[in-house]
Design a protein around this nucleic acid. Structure first.
Lengths: 327, 327
DNA sequence: ATGAAAGCGCTAACAC
DNA sequence: GTGTTAGCGCTTTCAT
């Protein structure tokens, strides 16, 4: 079922059929109707592959996330998908499973089949990313790279607020559980350090840990051994792991120890007690990055090549005042 | 950078270059090397779109999931991606956000760009699915449909075991929180009903509920009002919602009420207490479905067109013996 | 073992 | 407004 079959049946040229499906307004209403009818009868639909080849663009966007099972990634994907659809692009998702090699492979496989590529918190080398950016328009999130447009979720300030919050509750001994190296961890760490310096606290920094639940379970005992009254975790998964292990050891949260997460994923409201956490605007980041990518692909360059999205401390049940027993 | 550039540089015909990248063994080692060198120097890589058009297959597989943020979907995707890569296919993921229209749209958009399509727990009409299956090889999970190969996660037996487990713990008043209609809910409901009948119990069936955390929060009060001592939820998200609301209302689990989930997602081990749940083999389902799809696409038809994967009750901390106060 | 030539299905100038 | 004519970049007979 090709454009020629439809053309023959409608008694027009293939070009006209093509126009009906690409720029309907340029063909006379009568002809258009005849073509559409013929197409309908033949159950014809344009072949997107052939179309991509001829147009030299695919109408597809690609996104590579570190881990599809991670709900932070999921929020970004959802937002990106919505923006993409809105602009009539299809979005292809692939996951790197946190492996640098996979990430590179996925990105390279995707690159020639899409008009633009969104890399979220990429781990690949600068050189590799630049090479990709030579092949296809690339936008990254949470990664600083010359000449590649980026959307950053800046959390230094909000993480600082978390420290102030703990300080106000009377906490003087605070631990930070670092995540994998990258923009996110740096932003969180620097915000925490700065606030601590301001308040005269000396944080205990542990890690780096993989950004997973199991890391939190493991870290819980280290935190307890460190003798702190409050702990700030790189993300909610780690914080949830802490909660579980604390519960197992009979340590009450927040009475005996306060816990702060990062990301404000769905998990934060699912655990007991609900997590105080730094809300990272994942959906906004996904949407902004996708819009940026689309503008980039289309050539309507807005000039802005870097967005910093602010975060916000959300106070819930996992933080509370220091009690006598805490120390 | 096309095949012709490489051909010119290597002093061979375009056909030879093509062969080097498609069937290397058919070209003399010397020539092959020259071509590869030329390609390297020109940083040439075959254009997958052109290749797809000429070969009339894309080397891509597509998967449509109801909700990318759902960790059950995530497990299936991970397994599918692994199988796909193993067979040298790229996997494109799209989500329907639980909307039937979206599902249909996503599937139709994907269909002409892939060699095969995997639809997980599809909600679309039989007619729509069959239409898709006419365009492209389709495999479904958790959906029964004539002439479309399927992988089913059968849970009637394991859900029955959950009921037996509760019965053995002394529970006589049991509620079931139904999920959205479909194969999964039917399989779970029928297993539950059968076991109850066998044991002389009369379950209170509530719902259907959307398979989300918030549904569980809402359902918790209904469950309490129903006066049961145990509740089986359609999935872990709902069960987690129950746990949270019970905690808020000061109802202790499992001392005052026992909770059973379904799926055995990561969440089941993240909540307090850890969820007793029916393990559904999501990864196995994803892997099996993908293998089936690949065989189907390749034409090596094994004859088997339907797989039923068994589930298993995992006992954890959210179920316990009935106590005097329970009733 | 390699090359020439004819497409794959669609688009895009350019005519008319 | 519509048709003609070249491709888009690669594969694949069919010769040689």
């Amino acid at each position: 079922m090709t454009i020629r079959d439809v053309a023959t049946r409608a008694g027009v040229s293939p070009a006209t059929v093509s126009r009906v499906f690409s720029q309907p307004e340029t063909v006379a209403p009568g002809t258009r109707q005849r073509v559409l009818t013929a197409a309908e009868e033949l159950r014809y639909a344009p072949n997107p592959v052939a179309r991509s080849l001829a147009r030299r663009r695919t109408g597809n966007l690609g996104i590579v996330v570190p881990d599809i099972a991670n709900s932070f990634s999921a929020m970004i994907i959802k937002a990106a998908q919505q923006e993409a659809r809105h602009a009539e692009y299809a979005l292809f998702v692939t996951a790197s499973e946190e492996l640098v090699d996979d990430e590179e492979r996925q990105a390279r496989a995707l690159a020639p089949q899409v008009d633009g590529l969104l890399l979220t918190s990429p781990q690949a080398s600068d050189a590799c990313l630049r090479e990709l950016a030579d092949i296809v328009p690339v936008v990254v999130t949470n990664r600083l790279l010359d000449s590649v447009p980026a959307v950053l979720t800046e959390s230094a300030q909000a993480t600082g607020h978390a420290v102030e919050h703990l300080h106000a509750l009377g906490h003087r001994e605070v631990a930070y559980l670092a995540g994998p190296d990258g923009y996110s961890n740096q932003s969180r760490t620097s915000g925490l350090q700065a606030a601590c310096a301001r308040l005269g606290l000396e944080p205990v920094v542990l890690g780096p840990f993989p950004a997973r639940f199991s890391s939190g379970v493991r870290a819980a005992d280290l935190v307890l051994a460190a003798g702190v009254t409050a702990v700030v975790a790189f993300n909610d998964d780690i914080a949830a792991g802490l909660l579980t292990r604390f519960a197992d050891r009979g340590v009450r949260v927040p009475e005996q120890i306060s816990v702060v997460g990062h990301d404000d994923t769905a998990l934060a409201e699912m655990v007991t007690p609900r997590l105080t956490t730094v809300h990272i605007p994942a959906a906004a980041a996904g949407a902004t990055a996708t819009q940026l990518l689309i503008r980039y692909v289309r050539g309507d360059d807005s000039g802005v090549r870097r967005y910093e999205l602010p975060s916000e401390l959300i106070v819930r049940g996992s933080t509370g005042p220091v009690t006598a027993r805490s120390t």
